[in-house]
Design a protein around this nucleic acid. Sequence first.
DNA 1: GCATAAAGTTAAGCCCGCTTAACTAAAAAG
DNA 2: CTTTTTAGTTAAGCGGGCTTAACTTTATGC
Lengths: 149, 149
Amino acid sequence: MTKPAQITQSLRTWMDVFMHRSMRGWSQFAKSTGLSMPQFSILMQLHHKGPCGLSEISERFDISSAAASQLVDKLVQSNYLERAEDPSDRRAKLLRLSENGAKLVDDGIHERYRWMDELASKLDAGERVKVVEALEILTKAAQNLEDKK
Amino acid sequence: MTKPAQITQSLRTWMDVFMHRSMRGWSQFAKSTGLSMPQFSILMQLHHKGPCGLSEISERFDISSAAASQLVDKLVQSNYLERAEDPSDRRAKLLRLSENGAKLVDDGIHERYRWMDELASKLDAGERVKVVEALEILTKAAQNLEDKK
DNA sequence: GCATAAAGTTAAGCCCGCTTAACTAAAAAG
DNA sequence: CTTTTTAGTTAAGCGGGCTTAACTTTATGC
């Protein structure tokens, strides 16, 4: 740890470049779908965490259940979500991505990956080895950090 | 290039972890300031690209000049922005961050960096060297990619 | 069984961001 | 000097997201 500032600086610079670029692509895609950001986020969440009830939506996004219900309703009407009864609790609803919704999310994810793939294609073999190794270190450290909380 | 999938996979995994985490912190901070996302984005943009006129705002965010004018007006009234006359063109206004606005942006950036710094602190010396090297490769490649467009 | 709690829905109302349209003022073009 | 273009503001109106409040339906605690 002779130069603690170095790693900090590298991470910050990379973060700036990376955030700037990927946020741009992300919001462009969201805009192109015609969905609002909250709507889009709900689809993404359903994708990552799987089907869930409405109460989970309202908790995770920190909005009232009324707001969640309305957002979900729009997504159901746009045919991105299916809202079924939960057989184990007839009060609850089971929300899941429709075929249409799943496709949209996949497209969005693919869009986010595109730039990364392009970036990878610019690296030579030696660079790739180094990058893979470093990213595995970072990913692992990040997951440890997350788990401890 | 024996395994083209490997680097792609590493980049994607890291991206998922990284995006998830930094988006969370970012939107939490935006919320805590009481500013809307468009308002916050304008401040960030002023910080990164320096003072500019209203027309640049409307172009960069792809909104009408009326919308930009209204957003800016709120930021001026909240004392985050200064709106002065451009001495070289009396039609134009010169928008710049106020002291207050600059502080807010700095806080936001610092908040975004916090997690990265924490991450860095979990690495040992050998890992840091590798990470620094890899991030420099990536950052450089990203900047090349950007310049060519 | 009955009271209470929990899951969702619906409606009224608010603020926000955005657009179009009409306008003012200043610069540029002729 | 007059016309046109450019920079910005203001107002009306729309749709979106959010909240609170009132309500229905189903599960749970006692």
